[in-house]
Amino acid sequence: MGSAADITFTREELQEALCRRHTPAIQERLNRGRAAIAGLGGLGSNAAFALARIGVGHLHLIDFDRVDLSNLNRQQYFMRHVGMYKTDALKEELLEINPYLDIRTDCVRVSEDNILSLFAEDPIICEAFDVPENKAMLVNGILELFPEKIIVSASGMAGYGRSNDIRTRKITEHFYLCGDEVSGSGPGHGLMAPRVAVCAGHEANLIAQLIIDGCVNIT
């Protein structure tokens, strides 16, 4: 398990390795990068892994739920995490990738009443919920309460195949939507690791671009 005793590389060694891949100028922006991930299921856990791996320095993980055995078909957890809060399990994993990240966790259910306090410090929010009403609540809440922030949301990633139907669409300067926008989950149309990861990759890739370039032109 990811205890401090397992850390065998210094902050400087890890920085050098990341800079070798990304260049120092880009790594500096990633180190200063800050994003919240709301919902730590298939979308959120995969997006968080991607952002942690490239060294996005400040991550804010939010979920109220515990890891269930049925989550392992698509979410970035292991059997040893079943029963743990997702915030604790994911933080543990991300610190195994990079123990020098600043990771804040909030084990709470997001509602209209706590959006203002919960997301005050996050310039970019990754909406990674499961239930459509919750997705709409967070997107509307962020855009109404924080007009300066950017929300990256996802809709439509159930099933398998049709990778290229999943896309990133800019709705406004502050609202991006990833997914095919039609494939909802339901009986006979389950969420599966490969396609959920494609969509989570869209969200994480856009957030990387927002952090590195500060703006995005999608064609």
Partner: peptide
């Protein structure tokens, strides 16, 4: 107008 509809899954 752009109406964005959300479907389930995450």
């Amino acid at each position: 107008l752009e109406v964005v509809g959300f479907v389930g899954g995450g």
